[in-house]
Design a binder for these strands. Structure first.
Lengths: 205, 205
DNA sequence: ATAGTTACGGACCGATTGGTAAAATAACAT
DNA sequence: ATGTTATTTTACCAATCGGTCCGTAACTAT
């Protein structure tokens, strides 16, 4: 019987995500990767086959952990405005309170490796389509929900704004810029119910 | 008297922009750079001092050529809706008709090198602030112009959407997604004049 | 204790990296 | 022809790159 592996693949994948998120694909060397995962590259090569395999594992981890978390926020919210408010404000809160300026790894990968690698491009496209569906479902849900077609179009717009917000976070934009973007984006989310006072989350002014 | 330099620095900078735009900073090797500029690295080192200097020159060129072009489109348009329509539709037209999927080099740099290099970070921040001012000026202009404060907030939102649109372009998103984003973003641009029929560019539905 | 299978850690590999140096050649004015 | 500076070519550099190889180790079954 074989020698048992001494590390958790999921844990390694999370560490891989951290280093690729911070430094990008080309910017992360195998030394960086070894340091981040606390593993030797031979161990990593045995599981992931190549540096590119490590990157794809990082992308899958981001989908499973972070994109799924966004989906959960929207699905478990009392209503879409609350859901989107939690999601978008969470991005800004992380940036301002915790100094988390990594941005969105999906955006980063869209710019970094999607143009360079068909496999990454396909995975990115699939994840973006999933996020759009998540946003559209949220916008179509509840008493104030819009129709399916309108939901999809609005979802695309809010998702573009969301991606733009995350680019601004990574660029180092100031808190007031980020807050303005969030406040304005939330105005695109239809109110939960027009006749229910106090339920809408974002008010202009 | 000295031998005159045999290449235009501006032309070299434009070629540098092309290669960094396509491959990113770390992804572009000196071999790539020599091929793109058709110059030897010694010649480039004499002018730009380092690879990072070449990147900063590329960024300055992007500001001077492409960001300035956006500013010109908005300033020379008949009204803000027309200006933003030209700007945003131009992005999608380039992607669909010409296959230009490079995205926005300012976005790319925000994600790629701004987190890694303070000088790049500062330049990027300055360029983003300039673009915001440009959008705000456009939104505040004309008979349908909004107030300064509102213009700035809307500018931030539309700029975020614009950045998101360009991330989607680079990620390879389909034309209909891009068109929806543009159409939806244009709804945020106040109509030129409420009583002037036929002048508004983007109508819902 | 030994064999079989797989994992770990250090060594190794050819290629490439960003950058520098020197020599030959070139372009210009004098 | 000379002086000055630039370009090109060639060479060089240490370091690092992504990836592979091999000796040792961990486990179970025999």
């Amino acid at each position: 019987m074989a020698r048992p592996r001494e590390f958790e693949i999921d844990e390694a994948a999370r560490a891989l995500l951290e280093v690729f998120w911070a430094k990008g694909y080309e910017g992360a060397s195998l030394s960086d990767i070894e340091a981040a995962t606390r593993l030797n590259k031979q161990s990593l090569y045995r599981v992931f086959e190549s540096k590119r395999g490590m990157y794809l594992a990082a992308l899958a981890t981001y989908d499973r952990d972070h994109v799924a978390a966004a989906r959960t926020i929207l699905r478990q919210a009392a209503d879409p405005p609350a859901g989107f408010a939690t999601l978008l404000n969470g991005v800004v809160d992380s940036a301002l309170a915790s100094g988390d300026r990594r941005g969105c790894f999906l955006c980063n990968a869209s710019i970094d490796q999607a143009p360079q690698d068909p496999e990454t491009s396909g995975r990115v496209a699939s994840m973006i389509a999933g996020l759009e569906r998540t946003f559209a479902e949220a916008l179509a849900s509840g008493p104030g929900g819009v129709g399916k077609v309108d939901a999809r179009r609005r979802a695309r717009k809010i998702m573009a704004g969301y991606f733009g917000l995350r680019v601004l976070v990574r660029s180092g934009a100031a808190g007031r810029v980020l807050r303005d973007v969030v406040d304005q984006l939330l105005e695109d989310v239809p109110a939960a119910e027009k006749s229910a006072p106090g339920k809408a989350v974002s008010k202009p002014g």
